[in-house]
């Protein structure tokens, strides 16, 4: 982990209220793995940093997907290219694949697709199938990016683009034919619950990247905890920042 000074190099509107930010650094960034995140310092009245998953990365830059959901993200969306921003990165355990995981199913909901896009970059030697769910046609994002990794299915809840219905229902209909070795997912809680049921029924391991209100982002303050089942059956409050943000979907209490 390192506090790095970035320049906002590029800002691109992905859909209504959702931006892609590209942050560039003069110095080389510490090594980043898929599913890790950064903790971005805002200015003025926003004292707490804001956590964002890393959507794209290379040696000197990172991209984030910023959905405007409150005052802090609104402030961010107002920033113009050239603004200096500091962020601690990389944070968290990220997604880990074992050798036996050859066919990977990426299942994203809305902006939750973003952290999954780094998996094929960290593990380029696997087969990927992506299922991306959005509420409606105007919110569809990332189709081209995931398309570059392999077969990609897009669904919208209202059926206005791609296949209609919840993406988890669409996946449930296809999963026996797909036979993935593992599911990696990120998205709204109801979607994660549906994935947990599917994973349990089909006996396919699933890992999710979660979101939590954060304080320090370095593992010290214990405000971002989530309840996680331990091997001995007890429930422990684990830090989303450094023990997560990726947890086994079977163990986390959603």
């Amino acid at each position: 982990m390192k506090d790095v000074l970035f320049t906002l190099a590029e800002k691109k509107l992905l859909c209504d209220g959702v931006w892609e930010f590209t942050l560039a650094s003069q110095e080389a960034l510490p090594p980043i793995r898929c599913g890790q995140f950064l903790h971005l310092k805002l200015d003025g009245a926003f004292l707490l940093r804001r956590p964002f998953c890393i959507y794209k990365y290379d040696t000197h830059s990172v991209s984030l997907v910023v959905a405007v959901v409150g005052g802090g993200t609104r402030r961010l969306a107002e920033l113009s290219a050239g603004t200096r921003l500091s962020a601690v990165l990389p944070i968290g355990n990220g997604f880990t694949l074992e050798k036996k995981h050859r066919k990977i199913l990426l299942l994203g909901g809305g902006v939750g697709c973003a952290p999954l896009a780094t998996v094929p970059v960290t593990y380029p030697d696997r087969e990927y199938v992506s299922y991306l769910g959005f509420s409606r046609a105007s919110n569809v994002m990332f189709e081209k990016e995931f398309g570059a990794f392999g077969k990609t299915v897009v669904g919208t809840d209202d059926g206005s683009y791609g296949r209609g219905g919840y993406i988890t229902d669409i996946l449930a209909a296809d999963i026996d034919a797909l036979c993935p070795d593992i599911i990696l997912t990120c998205g709204p809680t109801p979607m994660l619950k549906a994935v947990a049921r599917l994973s349990h029924q089909k006996k396919i391991p699933a890992y999710m990247s979660g979101e939590s209100h954060m304080g320090c982002g370095v593992g010290a303050c214990l405000v971002c905890t989530c309840a996680v089942k331990q091997p001995d059956g007890t429930i422990a409050n684990k830090r989303a920042c450094v023990d997560g943000p990726v947890f086994n979907l079977e163990d986390i209490l959603l």
Binding site: S212, H213, M214, V223, C224, T225, A236
Partner: peptide
Amino acid sequence: EGNASPRIAETPM
């Protein structure tokens, strides 16, 4: 194990 989450809220300053 402490309290349930959320455990933090940002307030004015």
